[in-house]
Amino acid sequence: MLRIDLEPQSHITKADGELARDRVLALAAGKPVCVLLDITGVGSVSREAVTFYSEASHVAAFALLGGTAVDKVIAHGLRGLAWPDCPARYFVDEGEAMAWLKGYC
């Protein structure tokens, strides 16, 4: 299981998404992996960044974690774009997110 924490108030760009995708692929080492993506307090995530996150083909499941109304809007916007062919769900509680991910890992 991998955790990616996005910086609060940051604006996630294509380069950020590419870096995260490369890290996920390297750490997965060809095996399916579950990812907890913490978007709490993020200012924005570009469509190009989502494209790179979605190309992490070894992701078994994505849990999106946030805590504000803006986080929820961002998460639902992200889920409306091209994601890997895997389950993705938004959570406000980290424990619930981890429990859900464990069902896929």
Rank of each mutant, 00 (worst) to 15 (best):
M1H: 12
M1D: 07
M1G: 09
L2M: 13
R3T: 15
I4Y: 07
I4S: 07
I4D: 02
E7V: 14
E7S: 12
P8A: 14
P8V: 13
P8K: 15
S10K: 10
S10T: 11
H11Q: 04
I12L: 05
I12N: 01
T13N: 05
T13P: 02
K14C: 12
K14H: 06
K14M: 13
K14N: 11
A15R: 13
A15N: 07
D16S: 10
D16G: 05
G17K: 01
G17L: 03
E18R: 13
E18I: 03
E18D: 11
L19H: 09
A20W: 15
R21F: 12
D22W: 00
R23S: 12
V24R: 08
V24C: 05
L25V: 11
A26Q: 11
L27E: 07
L27V: 03
A28T: 04
A28E: 02
A29W: 09
G30I: 02
P32A: 07
V33I: 15
C34N: 10
C34M: 06
V35G: 07
L37F: 14
L37E: 07
D38L: 07
D38E: 08
D38Y: 09
I39P: 02
I39F: 03
I39G: 02
T40C: 02
T40D: 01
T40P: 00
T40S: 13
G41N: 04
V42C: 08
V42T: 09
V42A: 08
V42Y: 00
G43D: 04
G43W: 10
S44H: 02
V45Q: 04
V45F: 00
R47Y: 00
R47T: 15
E48L: 15
A49W: 12
V50A: 06
V50I: 14
T51G: 13
F52L: 06
F52T: 00
F52G: 00
F52V: 01
Y53T: 11
Y53G: 10
S54M: 09
S54N: 12
S54T: 06
E55W: 14
A56Y: 10
A56H: 09
A56M: 11
S57V: 15
V59A: 10
V59Y: 06
A60V: 10
A60K: 09
A60E: 07
A61F: 05
A61M: 11
F62L: 15
F62M: 09
L65V: 03
G66E: 02
G67Q: 03
G67P: 04
T68F: 00
T68H: 00
T68K: 02
A69Q: 03
D71K: 00
K72M: 05
V73Y: 00
V73C: 02
V73F: 00
V73M: 04
I74W: 08
I74P: 02
H76Q: 09
H76M: 08
H76D: 11
H76C: 05
G77A: 07
L78N: 08
L78S: 07
R79F: 11
R79N: 04
R79W: 11
A82Q: 13
W83M: 15
W83L: 15
W83P: 08
D85Y: 04
C86K: 04
C86M: 09
P87D: 08
A88S: 15
Y90L: 05
V92G: 03
D93K: 12
E94Y: 12
E96Q: 14
E96D: 14
M98K: 12
A99C: 01
A99V: 06
W100R: 05
W100F: 06
L101G: 01
K102D: 10
K102L: 05
K102Y: 14
G103Y: 14
Y104Q: 10
C105I: 06
C105Q: 14
C105P: 00
